[in-house]
Amino acid sequence: MDKSYTYTLIFMVLVSMILTSILAVSNAAFLPTINANAWKAEQEAILDAFGITVDNPEDFFEKNVKEKDFGVVKGFELTGDLEAYALPFEGAGLWGTIRGYLALDKDLDEILGITFTDQSETPGLGGRIEEPQFRDQFRQVVFKPLKYDSELQAITGATQTSNSVLRIINNFYDQVLPKLEVN
């Protein structure tokens, strides 16, 4: 059953070509859905930062949220009953970059909420920063340099990640907030 070199080569090339083309087609077919999902997740994260839960996030987003250029970052503006801004942030966590949205009220002096869109922290420990229990601590908090105390608590067993989160927010306060162009 020993095949010649030529056969081996042709077989390999043929198999590679067939399998790769199927994958290329599948990828192209799935891509629109995957991108739509990514955008939907982004919208939900932004609405969550604002503290808004609605039945139809996409509809609500279409009607009330607009992209806005703040000069130093590009974020989103919420109009309607509640007026606020959602600003993207990113910074170093323990394992990788932590990204998310910080929602501030119109006067930029109160945090309405925070969501994380990207983090590679330890699952079950640092990864728990995504849980509502941790994030809800940041709702309606005066925006100033923060630290952990009896009111604002870090996650047990995830000191590094918890500290990274505060460091990123405080950094935002020092470096980005002064440069924000609201008009």
Partner: peptide, 8 residues
Amino acid sequence: PQRIRMLI
């Protein structure tokens, strides 16, 4: 072909 079995 036996040679490239694992690869395939």
